[in-house]
Design a binder for these strands. Structure first.
Lengths: 131, 131
DNA sequence: TTGATAATCAACCATATGATTGAATGTCAG
DNA sequence: CTGACATTCAATCATATGGTTGATTATCAA
C-alpha cells in the first residue's frame, strides 16, 4: 500500500508515469538530445542553442519548450533574452527506471560501473575521445 | 578524432542515434513500459501480454511491434502462437546515454548505486511495490 | 471438414509532432 | 522615436501515433 522508499522507481503512480512519458518522449528526438548535450555544463541562449542546427530558430524554440515541459530545461528570461539551463533531475528518474533491467546486462554492467566511476572522477564531463 | 572506446556513449553516429530514437520513443508510452515490465523474467504470448490492458488485442500487438522495431522485444512464432521475449540490450545503450548526466545527481548518485546493488542482490527482479 | 483460437493485416479516425513562414511582442541602442 | 534584435505566437502542412473495428491468415482440435 505505502509506496516504496524510492518512489521514483515505482512508475505505477500516474504522476510519475506521466513524467516518464514526457522525459522519454523528449529524449526520443536527436535534436533535443543534442540540445541537452549543449547545455551540459553551460547555460545558453535560445539563439546560441539554435546556431549549430540547420532548422529554423522557431523550430529550435519549440524543441526547447518540449524540454521545458519535460522538466529537463529551465528558462530564465531577462529582458529580451532567455537563458536556458539543464535540469538533470528528471533524467535521474528515467535512469532509475532503466536500471531495473541492469541485471540483464551483467557482464556489461561492470563496464557501466567503470564508466560511471570514470565520469564521476573526471572534473568536466568531456569524453576522452577514446584510446 | 577517433571514436571513444565505448562507442555506445557517443551518439554522434547516425546509427546509434537512430537506435536511441527508437528506444526512447518506445519507452515513452506507459503501455509499452508496462509490457516490458511484464516480460521481465518470463516470456509471454501476445494474448497473455494483452490480458491486463483495457485496449484491444490489436492495439497491444501494434505496441509489441514498436518494441520489436526498437530491438527491445523479440518474437518467436511457433504455430499460431508468438512468444515474446525481452531483450534488454538496447536499454543498456539508453542507460549509458542517460548516465552521462550522472554527475549532476551526485548526492542521489549514492542512492542509485545503492539501488543497483539492491537490485543485483535480489534473486528475482520484483520491486516492493510491484504489480 | 468444421470450427474455435492466436495473431496480424487493413482501413479508418482523431490527435500529436516537427517543420515551415509570417506576424507579433518585447527590449535594448542610437 | 526608430530600428535592430531575441524570442515567441499563429497558421499551415505532411507525417506519425494510438486507438478502433472488420477481415484475413494460420494453426490446432473435434
Amino acid at each position: 500500500m505505502a509506496k516504496p522508499a524510492l518512489k521514483l522507481v515505482d512508475d505505477a503512480t500516474d504522476l510519475e508515469s506521466e513524467r516518464l512519458d514526457l522525459v522519454f518522449s523528449a529524449l526520443s528526438d536527436p535534436v533535443r538530445r543534442a540540445i541537452l548535450e549543449q547545455l551540459d555544463g553551460k547555460d545558453l541562449l535560445v539563439s546560441e542553442i539554435a546556431e549549430p542546427f540547420d532548422i529554423s530558430l522557431q523550430a529550435v524554440s519549440k524543441h526547447i519548450q518540449v524540454l521545458v515541459r519535460a522538466g529537463l530545461v529551465t528558462q530564465q528570461r531577462s529582458g529580451r533574452i532567455s537563458r536556458c539551463r539543464l535540469d538533470a533531475g528528471p533524467i535521474f528518474g528515467a535512469a532509475l527506471w532503466l536500471n531495473r533491467y541492469s541485471k540483464y546486462w551483467q557482464g556489461q554492467f561492470d563496464t557501466l560501473a567503470l564508466y560511471l566511476d570514470e565520469l564521476a572522477r573526471r572534473p568536466d564531463g568531456q569524453d576522452t575521445g577514446g584510446e
